[in-house]
């Protein structure tokens, strides 16, 4: 590409950059819009020009309310849900990738099907069951139901990664004098790490953004996604506060994504471990 300096190639390159830029603006615009809204006073909310008096009042209102408590609730259930998924999902993904057993594909498909059943479809029976079992309005209940969101995703992404690793590598490491557990920890886990990171992050995002489950399966143990509703009253809508709450809510995801960016790119482009 670099040595062919024909005008056509130059134009192509320019066009490519232009398109990517356009897409970047398109993708980032909602974030920018949210941020702008969050620093607008309510009175200027509906002006279409970008001229307004910036204010931090929205943030102050949100931070001084009990919103942060729900923010931490969300953090607790989402992180816990991802951790549980990792503990359960990594061995499950390994088993589905490695072992031949009866009904393997059926099990894998059933796990995946949890993902494409709409939440609203199962929420009523779940609500009743949760009421009976005493899981309604508990951290544990939410963490458990979040597995419907996180576990299939994690298992299916990691399964692909484990399948990419030749069983010979495992056998080689065992012959080299390591027990199965040591092989798993020292050879396999490092190889699936990009997938682990990417899947973990995606799971966290989905869990964090979950709305239907916390809305209907808990009351006091509420998450920030649901609580943001309170700024939408029937008579007034505090767009500024909604935006500020949303901006605060988006922070963990943005920070996480930036921290593990390097692994994320590798993890989402499969086949990173082909030797």
């Amino acid at each position: 590409m670099t040595q062919s300096r024909s005008p056509l190639a130059k134009i192509g390159k320019g066009l490519q950059i232009l398109l990517l830029l356009a897409y970047a603006v398109f993708a980032l615009f909602p974030l920018l819009w949210m941020f702008i809204m969050s620093i607008k006073p309510d009175s200027q909310m509906l002006t279409t020009t970008f001229i307004f008096t910036p204010t931090l009042e929205n943030y102050a209102t949100v931070l001084h309310s009990d919103y942060m408590q729900f923010f931490f609730n969300n953090l607790i259930v989402s992180v816990a849900a991802v951790l549980v998924s990792l503990v359960v999902g990594v061995p499950a993904a390994y088993a589905l990738a490695r072992f031949q057993f009866k009904g393997k594909e059926d099990i894998a498909f059933t796990i995946l099907s949890f993902r494409f059943a709409p939440e609203i479809l199962v929420i009523l029976p779940l609500y009743l069951i949760y009421q009976r079992l005493g899981l309604y309005d508990t951290y544990f209940g939410l963490i458990w139901v979040y597995q419907l969101i996180t576990l299939p995703l994690l298992i299916w992404i990691l399964r692909g990664f484990f399948e990419d690793i030749s069983p010979d590598i495992e056998a080689a490491a065992q012959l080299d004098g390591y027990t199965w557990w040591q092989v798993f920890l020292r050879v396999l886990l490092p190889l699936v790490k990009p997938g682990l990171v990417a899947a973990g992050l995606l799971c966290f995002i989905f869990a964090w953004n979950s709305f239907t489950f916390p809305l209907l399966l808990s009351n006091n143990v509420q998450t920030s996604t649901v609580i943001a509703l309170r700024y939408l009253a029937s008579d007034t809508v505090h767009y500024g506060q909604v935006a500020a709450a949303a901006a605060i809510s988006a922070l963990p995801e943005v920070i996480l994504a930036l921290l593990i960016q390097k692994h994320l790119v590798r993890g989402l482009s499969f086949g990173a471990v082909k030797g």
Partner: peptide
């Protein structure tokens, strides 16, 4: 053992 696929540790 020397494997047909070599089975080297890619990392």
């Amino acid at each position: 053992m020397v494997f047909e696929s070599y089975a080297l540790y890619p990392q």
